[in-house]
Write a protein that binds this DNA or RNA. Structure first.
Lengths: 334, 334
DNA sequence: TTGTAAGCGTTATCAG
DNA sequence: CTGATAACGCTTACAA
């Protein structure tokens, strides 16, 4: 691999001129031609490390998500990666296996890689750390959940109205006892989805039975157990909404194992994977988060910040979800 | 952020000594203590770019896969990422959206990032490019599929025996007309899986009807159409095996839409996602590739190569698959 | 064991 | 518009 020096030698020009050409400075048309030819002939490529050392930029963005096996996050990451690479940025993607301690470790790992910016889903409480990044002018975009008491750009779904609409669809079909399977209580998303559930009950003046709101972790196993528990209550619900994809899978497994007839015995609305709705029978009703839009918004916002545009900081984008009601939901037959 | 120079100043030692300490050289115990304290106090972190410029190492590995939305690949990547980060390597993950042209683009992108090594799934024909990398002493590990005529380390599943065993399970249950839904003909994995299908037919002396071997692309839509086509043949199969996850999803959707009764009318064996087997009814039989093992093997092999150990190059690891026969498969009722 | 000094390939300043 | 030159922070002979 050749260097600027080689190109300079080959063309008879100076290193400085070549550098200028590369960075889009003013160079005589005559010389432009020669340089271009030399660069191609010598297969010159800029050494990103030397450049980074000088400019203090790595052209690398960190992406930190809870799990690489979660299609919700990887779909978003896929969009982000695509957009950023078009802008010339590389992405270092890390997952922290849903482990808040590991989150901290990986975050430091990324910071040590001198990333120019970061897009992350945060579980943990390393607010000082994030603040330190911001102070160093490293833009941080929070994904999927906000962090209480931290001024930070954030892109997420409108979780509250997502569960509001889903539960509303159930209520307008005469369901009075509606179960909801939520994520961990301290989680931002779980809290929001829970608030939507409560609010729509209030708006329609339907009494809430707290026993029907069950919190578990956002896992397949959690969903399985939660649905089983709901079903085994003496006064079981006639409909249930599940608030993430993994738990939806678990809930369906439980429904299969318990031989629950959907929607006759139980109406169900799942989350996030529209494909799933056609794989199971009857077709599953789904709340879908706008992953493409979330990814695109986050990527664009980050690039904006990277360019130094801190207009309306901190910005929060709360994107609307879609809901698809299929045959897994039926009118309540008193 | 402080530099070695700062630490040197603070401790009264020289830059070289500090560097030696950092890189595990011999330093007086007395000085070790002072340096350690200074590093902590000043929050010194090594500048990876300066180091890279000098050593010509970035401590960064490129990972190139067809899609970040494909759980088969992301599961493997997750394992790789975890292992490599423990070894101090960062990973730049790119997907090429199943587009051979984009594959080339992203590959160049990664190379321009001066990666120390690469783990990739290749669709395209950029053999010269890969060869060029190898010549530059940048180790390349091929994942999931080999490239004909290229000497390269490779980690993949034993595709041939995977389909052999699956089809064998069908044949021993008296099925004579067995459909197989394959990926694109020119694909390495599709070819291998096709060979397994043929070989087991030969071994059991069952006649092959070429019309039952359908090639499509590895997509949900492809799987949907392929199963529909098989079903609509005048002489339809009594069993079918699907050779990747996406097509399995599509096939199940088709089965639902066509109201095919499984396993009475059609036995089916799917691929890759063991979870799926419990989500659909009846429980789906599955061939499962050892993703964790594939990821771990690839990561370890890469690290070995990075350390300069080119023992038994090029190495091919062909890992065994598992098969789970569930109620979606029944004995053929003539 | 420790220090000195020469680069690694770029960018950026300043003079020509 | 072009060129000489000084950094950027680190590693690494080589010398002390």
């Amino acid at each position: 691999m050749s260097t600027i020096k080689d190109v300079a030698k080959y063309t008879g020009l100076s290193i400085a001129t070549i550098s200028k050409y590369i960075n889009g400075g003013n160079v005589l048309e005559e010389n432009r031609v020669i340089i271009k030819e030399a660069i191609e002939k010598l297969d010159y490529r800029r050494n990103e490390m030397a450049r980074g050392l000088k400019t203090n930029k790595t052209m690398t963005i960190g992406i930190l998500i809870p799990s690489l096996e979660n299609i919700f996050f990887t779909s978003i990451v896929s969009i982000i990666e695509d957009h950023l690479s078009k802008e010339g940025y590389g992405t270092i993607i890390c997952d922290f296996r849903e482990d808040a301690d590991l989150e901290q470790v990986k975050l430091e790992f990324l910071v040590n890689k001198n990333i120019d910016g970061i897009i992350m889903v945060s579980y943990g409480a390393d607010q000082k750390y994030i603040k330190a990044l911001q102070d160093k002018q490293v833009p941080v975009i929070l994904l999927d959940r906000m962090l209480r008491g931290l001024e930070c750009d954030c892109v997420l779904a409108d979780n509250l109205n997502a569960s509001y609409q889903a539960v509303e669809a159930l209520i307008t079909r005469q369901h009075k006892r509606i179960g909801i399977i939520l994520g961990p209580e301290e989680t931002y998303t779980a809290e929001e989805r829970s608030r939507g559930y409560i609010r729509v009950h209030e708006d329609y003046d339907v009494r809430i039975d707290n026993a029907l709101m069950v919190s578990t972790d956002y896992t397949v196993e959690g969903g399985y157990k939660a649905l089983s528990d709901l079903w085994n209550k003496p006064d079981r619900p006639s409909a249930v909404m599940v608030t993430n994809y993994e738990m939806t899978i678990g809930a369906i497994m439980a429904i299969n194992d318990l031989n629950i007839r959907v929607p006759d015995e139980l109406s169900i609305i799942g989350f996030d994977n529209i494909q799933m709705s056609k794989v199971v029978r009857p077709p599953l009703s789904i709340v879908e988060q706008p992953m493409k839009e979330i990814g695109m918004t986050a990527a664009k916002l980050l690039v904006k910040r990277l360019k130094g545009d801190y207009d309306s900081f901190p910005a929060t984008y709360r994107l609307k979800t879609n809901i698809y009601i299929k045959e897994s939901v039926a009118k309540f037959q008193g």
